[in-house]
């Protein structure tokens, strides 16, 4: 159930990216998609009744949750930060040229 809700969150972000006409809203849509994928990965690695993957003294033979998805998500969070920074840099430049964040007033080029 949690997985399906997580997938719906992904679709909400995708909907935002594809239909919104404001550059900042598009960036927000991306953030939401990223959040859902991160959550998805961490949920995969969760094990019922297991401990966080950090060794503390006097803790023997305990089960730990899977550290690999956590490492992957850490990498992905930083990648998301980098992409957001690039998107914002372009957005602020476009704002200077056109005086608006609205994409309907910005189309010189057509695919």
């Amino acid at each position: 159930m949690a997985y399906i809700l997580c997938f719906i969150l992904f679709l909400v972000g995708l909907y935002g990216v594809l239909t919104k006409r404001n550059l900042i809203k598009i960036v927000i849509g991306f953030s939401i998609m990223e959040f859902s994928v991160f959550l998805f990965l961490v949920m995969i690695g969760y094990i019922d009744g297991a401990q966080a993957p950090i060794l503390i003294e006097g803790m023997k033979n305990t089960e730990f949750v899977d550290p690999l998805p956590q490492a992957m998500v850490l990498t992905a969070i930083v990648i998301g930060l980098a992409t957001t920074a690039m998107l914002l840099a372009i957005a602020i430049r476009i704002y200077k040229k056109y005086g608006t964040f609205d994409i309907t007033k910005i189309n010189n080029l057509r695919g």
């Binding site: 990216v17 994928v37 990965l41 995969i44 992957m72 430049r93």
Partner: peptide, 29 residues
């Protein structure tokens, strides 16, 4: 103008692609 707009469009589609790939990788994991 043209370069910025092209780059933004490229980033939007490229970003969707990257996230889809990441989703695929996580499902595969």
């Amino acid at each position: 103008k043209d370069e910025l707009e092209a780059s933004f469009k490229y980033q939007v589609l490229g970003g969707i692609a990257s996230l889809l790939i990441l989703l695929g990788i996580s499902l595969l994991y």
